[in-house]
Computed example of a mutant assay.
Amino acid sequence: MQLNFSGLQALVTGAGKGIGRATAKALQASGARVVAVSRTNADLVSLSKECPGVEPVCVDLGDWEATERALGGVGPVDLLVNNAAVALTQPFLDTSKEVFDRSFNVNLRSVFQVSQMVARGMIERGVPGSIVNVSSMVAYVTYPNLAAYSATKGAMTMLTKAMAMELGPHKIRVNSVNPTVVLTAMGQKVLRDPESTRKLKERHPMRKFAEVEDVVNSILFLLSDRSASTSGSGILVDAGYLAS
């Protein structure tokens, strides 16, 4: 998808790997200045070598105070992609406080915090903006051992709508993308069993999982003026899974 983001600054969380990394690279290739946020410095070093000019920020978004310090001075942001997440697998009955808290702190609370910081800056500058939250199809359907993760994504659906409603008068749009399994490093950790992976893939009408590029293209569309009247919505990138 060829889009022009020249003159705009984008902030992408979870930019070290997978969907976040591909999104940061695509935004830079489309003309945006990119701030790439990751908790893994080695990933940011390699990304900076691949994409000179990307501004790296190393911080654990699960730490509220550290996030405030790290992102307080990033400057004006026009486009925000809340992609950072952890997928910690435990059965519901065995889910620990540590797994629950970590899941919500990274997957949901950081979206709240970073979006507040960015949106306040947009409002102070009097400029429009676009925020995309990277969610999952498990906001709507269940999968074994993902109770905490699914709960964060279900909550993100309503947070996206609430943000869209309150920020809409300021010309700030907020949407989500909800992909099925994407076989990034995180996706492969969740689907360790080849047989269950095969069965899950066959439950998709298109008999496939999503590719990273499929998700990135949906993110870019929602960030762009081509979705100018879309806010509070979620794009399913699920190969038809929820239709079956």
Rank of each mutant, 00 (worst) to 15 (best):
M1Y: 08
Q2C: 02
G7Q: 06
Q9C: 12
L11V: 09
V12C: 07
A15T: 08
A15E: 06
K17N: 14
G18S: 13
G18V: 09
G18E: 06
I19W: 00
G20C: 11
R21L: 04
A24P: 06
A26E: 02
L27G: 01
L27E: 01
S30A: 15
G31I: 04
V34T: 00
V37T: 05
V37H: 05
N41Q: 10
A42C: 04
A42W: 02
L47H: 00
L47E: 01
L47I: 07
S48Q: 10
E50H: 11
C51H: 00
C51R: 08
P52A: 04
G53M: 05
G53I: 03
E55Y: 00
C58P: 08
C58G: 08
L61V: 12
G62I: 06
G62A: 06
D63T: 06
E65F: 06
A66F: 07
T67D: 02
R69K: 15
G72W: 04
D78C: 07
L79Q: 01
N82C: 15
N82Y: 07
A84G: 09
V86A: 11
T89F: 05
T89M: 14
P91G: 08
P91E: 12
F92Q: 05
F92C: 13
L93C: 11
D94G: 08
S96L: 12
E98D: 15
V99C: 11
V99G: 04
D101I: 04
D101L: 13
F104Y: 15
F104G: 04
N105A: 15
V106Q: 04
R109M: 09
V111E: 05
Q113K: 03
Q116V: 06
Q116P: 00
G126Q: 08
V127L: 12
S130D: 04
N133H: 14
V134G: 04
V134S: 03
S135D: 14
A139L: 12
V141N: 09
N145W: 07
L146S: 13
A151M: 15
K153M: 12
M156L: 15
M156N: 09
M156G: 07
M158S: 14
K161V: 12
M163Q: 15
A164R: 10
E166V: 11
S176M: 13
V181Y: 02
L183Q: 14
T184S: 14
M186Q: 14
M186E: 10
L191E: 11
T197V: 10
T197Q: 13
T197A: 13
K199E: 14
K201D: 02
E202L: 15
H204N: 08
V212E: 09
V216R: 04
V216K: 06
I219K: 01
D225P: 05
S229G: 01
T230P: 03
G232P: 10
G234T: 05
L236V: 06
V237C: 06
V237E: 00
L242P: 02
S244G: 15
